[in-house]
Simulated scan of single mutants.
Amino acid sequence: MNFSRIEASKIVESSAPSLRLQLYVVTSTANSLDAVKQNLPEHRAYLRDLEDRNVLFGAGPLWTDDGQYFEGDGMLIYRATSVEEATAIAQADPMHTSGARTFKVRPWLLNDGSITIRVTLSEPQRSVI
């Protein structure tokens, strides 16, 4: 297959300024499901702190392709100013510092969608934004 590439800056330029939001997606791959389970409390506390600081846009486990099982992988989306900052945030996650998971960071330009109510999943907080 022959795929074309478009420079990211060209896509940003063509997006309406009010619609674009630069985020960073972290795919987190399990090295050991047992290690993931052991580090889950510290990982969840770290995510709650990121939520409190408005750094975490969203996070959660990834199921197997059939939607039936969890094998330890997850995805996180950060608000950051650069790939380097997002990488530093991911590196500090107890899942990654412990070696339970490895990760990859990719920039993601969110062009479409809306959020009208904020519900902090780890706490019973709600607010309109």
Rank of each mutant, 00 (worst) to 15 (best):
residue 2 N to F: 02
residue 2 N to A: 10
residue 3 F to Q: 06
residue 4 S to Q: 13
residue 7 E to N: 12
residue 9 S to M: 09
residue 9 S to Y: 10
residue 10 K to N: 13
residue 11 I to N: 07
residue 11 I to Q: 07
residue 15 S to A: 15
residue 18 S to L: 06
residue 18 S to I: 08
residue 18 S to K: 14
residue 19 L to M: 12
residue 20 R to I: 14
residue 24 Y to T: 05
residue 25 V to Q: 15
residue 27 T to S: 13
residue 29 T to P: 00
residue 30 A to I: 02
residue 32 S to V: 02
residue 33 L to Q: 10
residue 34 D to I: 00
residue 34 D to H: 03
residue 35 A to I: 00
residue 35 A to W: 01
residue 38 Q to D: 12
residue 38 Q to C: 02
residue 41 P to Q: 05
residue 44 R to C: 11
residue 44 R to Q: 13
residue 45 A to W: 04
residue 49 D to Y: 06
residue 50 L to C: 15
residue 52 D to N: 15
residue 53 R to M: 08
residue 54 N to H: 14
residue 54 N to Y: 07
residue 55 V to P: 00
residue 57 F to S: 10
residue 57 F to A: 13
residue 60 G to Y: 01
residue 60 G to V: 04
residue 65 D to R: 09
residue 66 D to R: 03
residue 68 Q to P: 00
residue 69 Y to Q: 14
residue 73 D to L: 01
residue 74 G to L: 01
residue 75 M to W: 02
residue 76 L to F: 11
residue 81 T to F: 03
residue 83 V to P: 09
residue 86 A to P: 10
residue 87 T to M: 05
residue 88 A to K: 12
residue 89 I to Q: 06
residue 90 A to D: 04
residue 92 A to C: 08
residue 96 H to V: 09
residue 97 T to S: 13
residue 97 T to N: 07
residue 98 S to R: 07
residue 100 A to Y: 07
residue 104 K to V: 09
residue 104 K to H: 11
residue 109 L to M: 14
residue 109 L to P: 07
residue 111 N to Y: 03
residue 117 I to Q: 15
residue 120 T to S: 14
residue 122 S to K: 09
residue 124 P to M: 03
residue 125 Q to C: 00
residue 126 R to A: 11
residue 129 I to C: 07
